[in-house]
Computed example of a mutant assay.
Amino acid sequence: MAQSTALPSVSPQQTRRTRFVCISDTHNCTVNLPKGDVLIHCGDLTNQGSFSELSKQVAWLEKADFECKLVIAGNHDLTLDTDFFEQYGNYFHNNTPQDPAECQKLLTQSASLTYLRHESRTIKLTSPSGPRTTFNVFGSPYVPSCGKWAFQYERVDAVAGRIWQDIPLDTDILITHGPAHLHRDENRHRVAAGCEMLRQAMWRVRPRIALCGHVHEARGVERVRWDLSSKSVRYKELANNDYQWEDPGAGNQKNSLVDLTRKGGNPLDNDGSRVSPPILETHKSASDSEKAKVATEDTTAQPGIGTRGLSGNPASARSDGAALAGRLGRRETCVVNCALQASSYPHAGPRRLHKPIVIDIDLPVWG
């Protein structure tokens, strides 16, 4: 199994193709999984999070042959949210008692699954037969309030902002159950159901890949180009209408592939650049004109929307210098909603399943 440790600062130069197989919203279903290096499940493993449901899903994932397997919960995985289940658990499972602690142990004590509960990891793929690459990942189950379900927060800026402040700036792979606003979030009512504060957090972090599910009908892929111009307002995006993903695996035996590699001819404009803490604090190590421009911004006046204690001047349109200094190579994010359910099952519609989405990307080789 891949090693999972606290986040160090690494900057290897050599890259190698790494294959991610991405799924979400299985809702007790199991499907054939294509081969890959990393398996990611973006939540809603079950319908109601019972021990029986979770046992079957965990057993399926544990048997899957991947070097690294990353899992988060979703709003339907009720017993994985202790606070929620203590308050509302009696309304579910036909009054059959469930033990949240025992349900959670299925994931927290799994020998082969890395269960992320609103937290980050550095992953090193160590198998001699694998790519031996490394990446930083952050995973969170939280979604804006949408009824009586688990892991929810109110759709209020202050609340949502605090939730997403925890995403580290050096995150390469962002895994959330719910989507960001206007990015793979249109539900069956033709409403954009994603979180705006998550979208703003994505602008700050600019991960290589942002994975989600939750809104089943929004399955698909898009590439978001971030506006990092010194004259722009925070959280702005550039027009990026050139990329249209058509599922190459629809109706055939091929993988539903997203090729972000150089060899594939359409690499992601994101070098995963990151900054050591001294640069974040002083900006004195900026080495090019763009970094120097960022260094002139006032980023120390008072706390703003930041992560890990970073600060900014909310009165300034460019108060996020810490999010930009030394990180201007992070210009694009591939957003993927990998929900397997093709409709809003179990709420509405029949149970129809998509294929997992496979992502190839060049990542740095460690050591």
Rank of each mutant, 00 (worst) to 15 (best):
G130Y: 00
P144L: 07
L324R: 15
T333H: 01
K56W: 03
R330Q: 12
A218N: 04
R19K: 13
R162A: 12
Y88P: 09
S9W: 11
V358N: 03
R204A: 04
I279E: 15
K69R: 14
K231W: 02
Q253N: 15
V336R: 13
L54C: 14
N94T: 13
S145A: 11
K355S: 07
V58K: 14
H183G: 02
H41Y: 00
I279C: 14
I163R: 10
V294G: 06
Y91T: 10
Q3A: 08
L39K: 02
E196I: 14
L268A: 12
A323L: 01
T26W: 00
C195K: 15
P179A: 14
C42N: 11
K355N: 04
I40T: 07
R352Y: 00
V215T: 13
F85C: 03
Y142W: 13
A210K: 04
P277E: 09
D25Q: 03
E332M: 02
T176Y: 11
R351K: 15
E281C: 12
A192P: 00
S256R: 15
A150Q: 01
L7M: 11
E281Y: 13
R223L: 05
E102R: 15
L113M: 11
G265E: 00
V365P: 04
F51R: 10
D185C: 09
D65M: 05
L80P: 02
G49P: 08
G272Y: 00
D259H: 08
G329H: 04
C29E: 12
A250D: 09
P34L: 03
V365H: 09
W245Y: 10
N47A: 04
I279T: 13
R234G: 08
P267G: 10
L182G: 09
V137K: 03
P8M: 01
P144I: 07
R330C: 15
K293P: 01
W245I: 06
T300E: 08
E67D: 03
